[in-house]
Design a protein around this nucleic acid. Structure first.
Lengths: 346, 346
DNA sequence: GCGAAGCATTAGCGCGCGCTAATGGGCCCA
DNA sequence: TGGGCCCATTAGCGCGCGCTAATGCTTCGC
């Protein structure tokens, strides 16, 4: 009976430390540190021995200890206000990509449109001492946000909140509205209705851009707005209102793709054909707009540019290269698909 | 001239430590630690003073140092093989939710269907010394995975790889296939084609379940499979083949929603009506299937159950309560929408 | 008034690693 | 053989916090 020999079928993950590697390689712990920090002044022979020992033991530098000791965290926090929105997810992909290129990890705070939850998530991110924050269309009001992240490197995407310390990246709403409306006007449309995204800052900006672009085109009189939010249901509801009111609008400028798709669903179910009877224009060019069954004409926001620029701006602040606030607006692009067509002559 | 007075418009985030709080509260550092760990044996008075000082200074416990000192990391790593797939994103939402309830943070490794990338991401997660891993349909082959995460608490979702140390959570493919096919057969369909998800493990399981369920229904002879993958394009391509071949199939059992939507797009563009001429069934019940314009009948995978169960299983391992491997299969559900209908009598 | 008991607080080591001043050793040249 | 130089390596402190044995203080009972 040897009670020590238990059936240890499942190996326990024994944490391997620098000391373990040093011991096995027959060198000091600090030398191992030097090797893993790519320092010079290490003989090729020693380096090889250390790397070999590390490999044999399955050693991996402990990010926690490393961050703690160096006082430099290579992790960026991303606060997402709505992870179910495909547009934001794509945004995250770009961010993650750009961050990785810069040698940073990304920690997400995936919100579900709740202010309270956002507060918690921000706390978590700050608790992890992330090097900087990227806020994607946050819901918390600016004053509170300003207080929470005071002095923290931050970039806000898609929502300008005039944070002293936060840079701002967005798409040029006015250009977007012009692109979309000119396209519709070129197709002969004049009476155009906008289904808004609600009372959030970005939604209001988009609505104003719509109204202004209509004015520029001399169509201020035939512009109409139906209030909604950024969901499919808002699109459905607005479409019902349009049908009920027997309005003479021939085109819809939706506040985003989801809204557009919701409207189209109701329109087609009611016998109103898209684009034969009504043209529909979305915003974001998210993945659903590209589905063949939907094939929605949409305004594309340059996500890749957003991602790259955000990370760049953030790193400038993290590295202390800049102290002044920067706002960047990128130009959106019109992607024409099959939901917009020449206005029917009646 | 007082060169010390610079225009310091942007406050620098000064890291506040436990010592700072202790100093301000006039107590020892360890007492602050006790307060923040909700220890007993702290007078209400001291507690209040510490908390006040912490609030005034904006102190937040440093997760890094905490993990290092306690040797307990409250972070779970999630490896996602394809973050652009809405199904996986929903999966992540549930996981994140369940983890938070258990007091854990979540660190994501967002893959884009690349094995090399997955390797890197795993390295990052392990470098962060996450308490455990959740692998969502990973691509890395089992043997390698087994070596990398040896002894690490892990749960695999949607892909069984017989890892000794990894539990397994999935949906019961056979039940899913039966649900879908019975529904189609009840509607009078017999000749049914499956558009497969390719050669990945989960795709093969789904295909086999389809074939077996067809056999059970006595329809082995009228079952057909078109190979594809889990993308919309695969659905389109398969639909073209179906049309070209003038096959007499009256129903399509797609390997996922995206494939189904792709097929529907081509069918309708070719004048084949859904569901009048052909019924289409998806899998996953992802967000797109619920869009009114699509309204796809689909097999719902119980994501919430997946998430809860995965976290629970993982915590059991992390807490050392269990050493043996567990596999859980949850029953999917049929969600009937508008893409399936009674077979046309010709 | 004294000891015991109980409670609140503190000192100090350890976590894994970054970083630097200091040490050691080898080599070359005179 | 001695001195000097340079390169490789090491000892040791610090990062912010967890944790516990030990200390100080108060209160109470007899």
């Amino acid at each position: 009976m040897t009670p020590n020999v238990l059936s240890n079928r499942y190996a326990v993950a024994v944490p391997v430390t620098q000391s373990d590697v040093a011991l096995r390689a027959g060198v000091s712990r600090a030398l191992v540190s030097l090797v893993f920090r790519d320092a010079t002044n290490v003989s090729d022979q020693s380096r090889a021995r250390v790397l070999l020992a590390a490999k044999e033991l399955g050693y991996r530098p402990n990010m926690l200890a490393r961050s703690l000791a160096s006082k430099k965290v290579r992790t960026i926090g991303v606060l997402l206000n709505d992870i179910t929105n495909p547009f934001f997810v794509s945004m995250y992909v770009e961010l993650s990509d750009a961050a990785q290129d810069a040698g940073y990890d990304v920690l997400v705070g995936p919100g579900l449109r709740s202010v309270a939850q956002e507060r918690t998530l921000l706390g978590t991110l700050l608790g992890h001492r992330v090097a900087g924050l990227i806020l994607i269309s946050p819901l918390i009001k600016a004053s509170e946000l300003n207080r929470i992240i005071a002095g923290y490197p931050a970039v806000s995407i898609a929502r300008d909140m005039n944070l002293d310390g936060a840079d701002f990246v967005s798409n040029d709403e006015l250009v977007g509205a012009r692109l979309g409306l000119r396209h519709l006007v070129d197709l002969g449309h004049e009476r155009i209705v906008h289904i808004s995204g609600g009372s959030s800052r970005s939604a209001v900006h988009r609505k104003r851009a719509f109204l202004r672009a209509m004015s520029e085109l001399g169509l201020a009189g035939s512009a109409r707005v139906i209030e909604g939010d950024f969901t499919e249901e808002a699109g459905r509801s607005a479409a019902r209102e349009i049908i009920r009111g027997r309005a003479d609008e021939t085109a819809i400028f939706a506040s985003n793709d989801l809204v557009a798709v919701g409207a189209m669903g109701v329109l087609e179910a009611s016998g109103v054909r898209v684009p034969e009877d009504v043209s529909v224009l979305g915003y974001d060019n998210s993945v659903i707009s590209d589905l063949q069954m939907i094939s929605l004409t949409s305004i594309e926001q340059p996500l890749r540019d957003f991602g790259r620029a955000s990370i760049r701006l953030l790193l400038e602040r993290i590295d202390g290269e800049r102290d002044t606030r920067v706002s960047l607006e990128f130009e959106p692009r019109l992607i024409v698909r099959r939901t917009t067509a020449r206005r029917a002559t009646h």
